[in-house]
Amino acid sequence: MSVNLTLLLVMGVLYAIGIYLLLERSLTRVLLGLMLLANATNLLLLATGGYAGLAPVFHKDIPAAAYNDPLPQAFILTSIVISFAVTAFMLSLVYRSWLLSRADQIQDDREDLRVARQDLFDAEEDSEIAIEVSDFHENNQPAASREMIRQVTLKTAKARGQHPGGGHGPGSRPGTGGGA
């Protein structure tokens, strides 16, 4: 099977530009990138059907090698319809995003940022130790560990103080325990 070199080159260029645009942060460019990728893929499908200039459909007098395979063209039609629908939908998403945030940019996920910011050491996990009120128990511990408990307690109390409505119940106890 011989392949049309022009088609191949165009396809390669489309893929290259498409991938470049896809990696941009601007949504419109990403969308354009997707469209170029879709078209490049359509060309690839077209290339599998044989080269240009052959008979378009099968007729019983034509030898098998002399007509163009119609199946890839059917694939391309399906693929065009799908990418058309998806492009329209993407466009509406981009527009909606512009309406909501006035920015044609891919937004960061707030929850992602929050998880990335959180401490490796979760004070809340260990706050139970600090609630231990028995002095007797505390004196048994080495001084360094007592100091650590005090630090943690202070930190927890501070963290809880920032939340409205978190100051009642057992949550307020570590603050007094730490000060003692």
Binding site: L34, M90, L93, V94, S97, L100
Partner: peptide
């Protein structure tokens, strides 16, 4: 949802 949707669609 739009933010997550765009990632998902792409």
């Amino acid at each position: 949802r739009i933010r997550a949707g765009i990632t998902y669609v792409v």
